[in-house]
Design a protein around this nucleic acid. Sequence first.
DNA 1: GTGAAAGCGCTAACAA
DNA 2: TTGTTAGCGCTTTCAC
Lengths: 345, 345
Amino acid sequence: MSILADVARIAGVSKSTASRALSGRGYVSEDTRVKVERAAAELGYVVSTAAASLVTGRTRNVGVVIPYINRWYFGEVLEGIEASLIQAGYDLTLYRLSSDADLRRRVFDYFLVRKRVDAVISVAIALSPNEVHMLQALGKPLVGIGGLIPGIPSLSIDDVETARLATEHLISLGHRRIMHVGGDQHEQMDFRVHSQRYIGFQRALTDAGITVEDDFRDAEFSIQGGHAAGLAVLGDPRTRPTAIFAGCDEIAIGIMVAARQLGIAIPHELSVIGIDGHPLAETFGLTTVVQHPGDQGARAVELLLGQLDATPEAPPSEHIVLPTTLSVRTSTAARRETPVTTASA
Amino acid sequence: MSILADVARIAGVSKSTASRALSGRGYVSEDTRVKVERAAAELGYVVSTAAASLVTGRTRNVGVVIPYINRWYFGEVLEGIEASLIQAGYDLTLYRLSSDADLRRRVFDYFLVRKRVDAVISVAIALSPNEVHMLQALGKPLVGIGGLIPGIPSLSIDDVETARLATEHLISLGHRRIMHVGGDQHEQMDFRVHSQRYIGFQRALTDAGITVEDDFRDAEFSIQGGHAAGLAVLGDPRTRPTAIFAGCDEIAIGIMVAARQLGIAIPHELSVIGIDGHPLAETFGLTTVVQHPGDQGARAVELLLGQLDATPEAPPSEHIVLPTTLSVRTSTAARRETPVTTASA
DNA sequence: GTGAAAGCGCTAACAA
DNA sequence: TTGTTAGCGCTTTCAC
């Protein structure tokens, strides 16, 4: 492990010149720059981040806090962030925050503060004013994904509107007996995404003058979860809905699997719509409202780098609402000219 | 941001005493320890890792290189690693290595070397002797997951044996027309997992004296991939296999979906078996050979910490082969008393 | 355009 | 048991 002094010696210059040549900051003649670079390459020299950050206060490392890794949406976001970060020469330090409040406090009080990260991206985690304040007091730029965090730039779709759009699509097909299979309202994600989508759903129904008695069923946000809920909800032909708006594509797919298993024809007896744009939606012919999590990750990094590199006194703190688009497939291909009721009553 | 000197001043001791009290290394009286801790808490002091690592050479940070994030197996491994690491007080810096050789070199030459990580976990990436040597020369412990890496401790299942086990299960059910739908043999993963599984498959057939003409079809390692391959392979009733050994559970599930779509009854007309232990296997009634990726991640961290904390001169470099277990479900529930041939010829 | 020197915040000998 | 001292490797004024 060679150090800067070695490089300087071999190149026949001082440490400070070597440092300038390598970092690109400050004036160095073309000649010496070449000499220094050659020496560095020869020695396989790599700057010590520890030493550099000690003096500059920058680590070129970004912390990412995220509640799940192995769910499609989150994995995509993470991949998007990682790719952008590495390309910009930044490292990514990963903190998976479970619902364990203790762990969360530890991560914020200890890990994130240790001057180890220059900035933080918070995915689907609603930072408390306290947490935001802490990080900001430390001068650490902050970007949120998946919901609005007051005071910092954040990125998300409009969950209420997206849910409304999905539900309206079902209504426009003639459905009246529509159900929402979504996230447990008590076990909320941080931004209360579950409620938001439920609210959008109900709003669409209300606006269309539709009343549904049994309009909600909770499910885990996974294909398994959707499948279990689907079996439960679709079992009784007399009470089953003719259309389901699922809280995410995984749930929607699980429901479609359950429907097939129960011999329920899609879309003739049941229409299904999801949210996200999961690649499986195509395989299953699932209509879905698409968002692009990978792009969201990339965009968040962009915002962050803007804060990091540019003017230190220009903290843009607006919330950006990302558009979602309807991608219609066979799961909602049937149009009902007259409202359908499977109930015999 | 208070620094150690502040804490020391408030506690009325010297910096070194404060350091000892906080780090737990060296002798400090109970009394002063309490005083120092109180002062630190009062100031919200957190040690600067940059400064600490500059002098100790340790960063309490582990680098993880992994080819995918959004695939079940890899996500699980990552979650397992993350949980164990954070519990041990280590950070995790994530590098997703695509097939881009350039990126790979950059990560090894630059990122991993910058003294930013104390150790490296390599998931499903076959490190070259060069890469291993580089990291070892730097004194960085190294653990591999997903295949044997000569000279370093590594962890993996026996892909050949696992594939053989799966195939033997199908054979024992009376199947003769068996096919392997697995990874592209050209687009190999680093440890040639695809070939290994294919070899195990073929070995089982050979041992049973079975010859199959069209015994392989490649697929992307995803449900979509399995679905596409399934449609292609199962389309013609005269040539279709009666059993399929899939390269992973995602592929197997995709095949099952395709089969249902084609009206092929499982397990009466087709048996399917996968590898991994994906949670969806239960939903789909898929028989599979189970491994536990999360545990593998945890185990890898254990091995790493052993090297990191313990005797510096005890590098255990053996490869540990993890057991896999057959989990039988309905997808292979049918026993054929006489070998089945769907072919009319 | 280049070098000398100071010091970032911390730990680890070594003395006391 | 505690304090003093000397750096860890780098960047960055400030002279030259």
